[in-house]
Design a protein around this nucleic acid. Structure first.
Length: 277
DNA sequence: ACGAGGTCCTGCGAGC
DNA sequence: TGCTCGCAGGACCTCG
């Protein structure tokens, strides 16, 4: 577990960028085809072999590796994916569950490892990328993501606010962990319909989403089991979580045992029924 | 429009 | 001890 969301992918991208930019993939090996979306094994491997990395960026929860051929390798780590540049030969543990291995010129190797393989790999041309990018909502840390933008997205839906917050068309990068945390910080009941929130509540939620994502980036993300930074280290934000993985434990605000439910989208929701209304 | 449920995938922990 | 079973869940899908 570890669930790479925005802070985790941001950390990965920052870590691997210096080691990858300008480098060439001397070869490419893929262990399983089931992680591919919209590209065949042959298409992926020939598209990567010999390609040079122009830059490495993050969009939503995805690492985007732009190649000199005008294509982009898009990595969605899913639940258990990690993306690490190894400078030394891989250990037995590191090579177990390695899905994509891309040795670099001048040494080292980019490795996508994914135990459960719920992550996906895409290789998109310019047009494919534009279409993919357009389908995603605003970046939560960008200036164009204002409280007004969030309010407009919430206005049109009676979905549970937690589900709406995790909808990648509303705002990208927020998954289960940070949705739970942001709603606790904003003192909002996750099961309220999105369109009944007051202007003030949306403003608070907007601010808390940004604050928590920034804090998680500063702590290199949240590691429970599988998530690793781009250098293979665990993150530290699990130490700062207020509700996630704390069902039954006392609320850090009022001491009431935290409640847990699967009623929203079949994912664990942890909240304080006293603080969140 | 929205909730519910299934699918993918495998390690792990609980229960018998 | 050794087995089975249910759970974790992001993205995507279908059904009512």
């Amino acid at each position: 577990l570890g669930v790479p969301e925005l802070p985790e992918v941001e950390t990965i991208v920052r870590d691997i960028r210096p080691a990858l930019t300008g480098r060439c993939f001397t070869s490419a090996r893929l262990s399983h085809d089931d992680v591919l979306r919209g590209v065949t094994r042959r298409g992926l491997l020939t598209g990567l072999r010999g390609a040079r990395v122009v830059n490495v960026t993050r969009r939503a929860k995805h690492a985007v590796i732009r190649l000199d051929r005008g294509t982009r390798l898009v990595v969605q780590p899913g639940m258990t994916g990690s993306l690490v540049v190894h400078r030394k030969p891989l250990t037995r543990d590191e090579s177990a569950y390695a899905v994509l291995r891309l040795p670099l010129d001048r040494g080292g190797e980019l490795v996508y490892r994914d135990v459960r393989r719920l992550g996906t790999l895409l290789l998109l041309d310019e047009r494919g990328w534009r279409k993919y990018d357009d389908a995603l909502g605003p970046e939560p840390l960008a200036a164009e993501f204002t409280p007004h933008v969030l309010a407009e997205a919430f206005r049109g839906t009676r979905q549970y606010v937690k589900k709406a917050l995790m909808d990648q068309r509303v705002v990208v990068g927020v998954g289960n962990i940070y949705a739970n945390e942001a709603l606790f910080a904003a003192r909002i009941d996750p099961s309220r319909p999105a369109n009944v929130l007051t202007v003030g509540e949306v403003e608070t939620l907007h601010a808390e989403v940004r604050r928590i994502l920034q804090a998680a980036i500063a702590s290199n993300g949240t590691t429970f089991r599988d998530y690793r930074t781009g250098t293979g280290e665990p993150g530290n934000f699990q130490l700062e979580l207020m509700v996630y993985d704390r069902e039954g434990e006392p609320c850090r605000n009022c001491g009431t045992p935290l409640a847990g439910t699967h009623a929203i989208d079949a994912r664990i929701t942890v909240f304080c029924w006293r603080c969140q209304t």
